[in-house]
Design a protein around this nucleic acid. Structure first.
Length: 111
DNA sequence: GTGCTGACACAGG
DNA sequence: ACCTGTGCCAGCA
């Protein structure tokens, strides 16, 4: 139900088509696996890594945002604490030192 | 339309 | 590991 005052489409399901598709993909990433911003963009065939990052920053709150990271396995500034707590809980593979996710092992193949 | 601003990617140094 | 420049794209003033 959506009487919504049109003031902020953010909380309505009325996101832009692109944003909606980005969130849909992220929502499908299995626990313990991850995707890079670029992976999501490539999967959708639109937006680009930067576009995905923009969407995540604005609308990522409702999806497993910690499963989307940078191409080198690091997490965006300010999100590390919450993200790594999740990785520990999900058993996500980390690189030695624990500062980044081991993409070679944790990257989701899309299946 | 123009001109920023950003949860980005990549090549260099 | 860090910083810089370039290319990229969505959202907003």
């Amino acid at each position: 139900m959506v009487p919504v005052s049109t003031r902020d489409r953010r909380d309505a399901a009325e996101l832009t088509g692109f944003a909606s598709r980005v969130l849909d993909v992220v929502d499908q990433i299995p626990s313990g696996r991850v995707l890079t911003y670029g992976d999501v963009a490539e999967y959708l065939g639109e937006g680009g890594a930067r576009g995905v990052g923009t969407v995540m920053a604005r609308y990522g709150g409702g999806v497993p945002w910690w499963r989307v990271l940078r191409a080198d396995g690091s997490v965006a500034p300010g999100l590390e604490e919450r993200a790594f707590a999740r990785y520990a809980a999900e058993g996500t593979a980390l690189r030695r030192g624990g500062t980044r996710v081991d993409l070679s092992r944790a990257r989701w193949d899309g299946r």
